[in-house]
Design a protein around this nucleic acid. Structure first.
Lengths: 246, 246
DNA sequence: TCGCGCGGTTGATCCATGTCAACCAGAGAG
DNA sequence: CTCTCTGGTTGACATGGATCAACCGCGCGA
């Protein structure tokens, strides 16, 4: 059983230019001729089984990863066992940026379902970014977007109440599913209540109760991991309506 | 009254190579000959008065900034007035990375005291990064470090209790003062209790009470914004000792 | 097909932190 | 030197979410 499945060179030569995730992934916004030059960038593909790590805290950093199939969570563990989920990633999104700063990964990336990633050797990426302006710029955008996203999560964790957090989470998921051509109003969550809770800074019971309340209020229909958003606009209002009128 | 104070070309030509913040700032780790080439990068310097913004949410992104003198906070505002401080920045640290992704700044950067920054035009930075490998790499490291730092804050906000958060905050400040050649155990905070609270996801009263409790316990001596750390190791233990033994 | 176990839901109670309010101290203005 | 204002401290009380515990039901393996 190999965890890593290198592909033939022939199979890889067309990695990016033929990929249907182009719109979401690193090559976004690049001109066609440059995208063809990207094909040499992707070193291999790697399949990761559900619950298996793509990388772990402390692993040597050598590559970043673009998700082709499936989804992941990233988390940070404290010595005493506490876990903080720092993000959920879906197809087209980039994993591993945390490793650049120290050459060691600073979090764990765990597959939420059987998944597959493109391995992008970091040295080669830097090299190519020096000659393909579009790649350089897009890569910087991807990192910056991650920083902005993190600020959003801080906002969530620092200033919002439980139901606001869950509403924001659902709307964010919905928006990302939409961007991938799936339904905005009906989707399947790949993570457990506990993982959602860890991400949102809540206990799983609180997440569960918030789901139930949303259901009672007719905002969403919840059946385990299957979510149907019934009242998008009321959900949106929930987020930025101050709770106490003072 | 000009907010922006462009310097003479002569004054700028030596911007980075003569700067004593070299060890902390963008040029870190670069070889001497490259650092000299950096001198052309810094476009101007800008002085910012206490409480004034370096940039605001929605401002067009054109440059990143390296802090020469002083300190800043960055924050995100919600429509209903809630504020989340996303970070405090000191000399040598880089501001503005949030703007790359959308070409618009996505947070406010406010001076906590009279400060001065080096303006680094982003277009020029990308251009130089394509020819100076060391600059490219260091720039990526800076962005990655920001992402890792953000994950740490999420950990704080998502999984730690009030006193743990404050302890982590104090230790982080101490470590950063040390890196700048100041005392590790005695320093002056530039931000208010409310700003600390916003950063840590707490109300100012809770911050104040935690300070008082630390003082009672002999961990630190607090006099308004002046902090003296008396028992570093006990402070450290506070962070990762699970509170409930179950 | 049945039984087991994990993930999810719900209820009762507790507690950390928020809220509201009073007061205090130092800094800056007149 | 005093007044005032802003930031900080402290106390009393309220509450959102955590904790603990019971139970439920779906999916998987035997």
């Amino acid at each position: 059983m190999m965890a890593t499945v290198p592909m033939t060179v022939a199979g890889l030569k067309k990695a990016c230019s033929q990929c249907n995730l182009l719109e979401l992934c690193l090559p976004f916004g690049m001109i066609d001729s440059d995208i063809h030059r990207l094909d040499e960038l992707v070193g291999a593909r790697r399949k990761i089984k559900r619950h298996q790590p793509l990388y772990r805290t402390g692993d040597l950093f050598e590559a970043i990863y673009a998700i082709r199939i499936g989804s992941f969570k990233t988390d940070v563990l404290l010595e005493d066992g506490r876990e903080q989920v720092t993000g959920f990633q879906m197809t087209g999104e980039i994993l591993g940026l945390d490793g650049i700063s120290t050459e060691l990964h600073s979090c764990n990336a765990i597959a939420l379902e059987d998944s597959e990633v493109c391995v992008i050797p970091y040295a080669k990426l830097e090299e190519l970014a020096r000659v393909i302006e579009g790649l350089q710029h897009q890569f910087h955008k991807v990192m910056s977007r991650e920083i902005v996203r993190d600020h959003g999560v801080m906002m969530l964790l620092g200033s919002m109440r439980a139901e606001e957090r869950l509403a924001a989470f659902l709307l964010n998921m919905s928006q990302r599913f939409t961007a991938r051509g799936f339904s905005a109003s009906e989707f399947h969550l790949r993570m457990t209540r506990e993982e959602i809770g860890s991400y949102l800074g809540l206990k799983l019971e609180t997440v569960s109760r918030a789901f139930s309340r949303f259901q009672d209020e007719g905002l969403v229909a919840v059946q385990q991991k299957h979510i149907r958003i019934l009242d998008n606009s009321r959900l949106k209002k929930l987020i930025q309506h101050q709770p106490s009128v003072r």
